[in-house]
Amino acid sequence: MLTLQFIPFSEISGLSPERRLKRILDAVKEDKIVVLEGKLAKEEETELIKATMESINGRFKGIEISVVSSDRKQEGVFRKLQRGLVEALSGARQGMTIIGPATIIREIRKDPDKVQLLTVEGSRNGRAGLKKKRRK
């Protein structure tokens, strides 16, 4: 059975970067696939990789991570400004981050319309799909 844990950004936005990453990693170590509302900062992503490496042992083999966000290349100038202003005021980061244990998720594939979680043989039937709404 696959367990997905949704973490709203509001739940971790008030935490320090260390506690934020610990919250995510603890859930992943419990074999849960974390679906995080929003994105981590680039520096936080590398800190997550470092924390993951420090946690690797016989049972925990690491993570698979993928960030899904709207196609910003198609955004107009006004839309970019609007998004930047909303993010600056609310502190929210648009998009979605999927983080799962490498013992369960073999690969995360993205294409414009969907996200595919390819699971390790034996953990499920091998493929789980999360459809992403295309932004109009």
Partner: peptide, 15 residues
């Protein structure tokens, strides 16, 4: 090339 490691690495260099 779209792997998250590549995107994270390049994003960090950019930052």
């Amino acid at each position: 090339p779209y792997s998250q490691v590549n995107i994270t690495l390049i994003g960090n260099l950019e930052a």
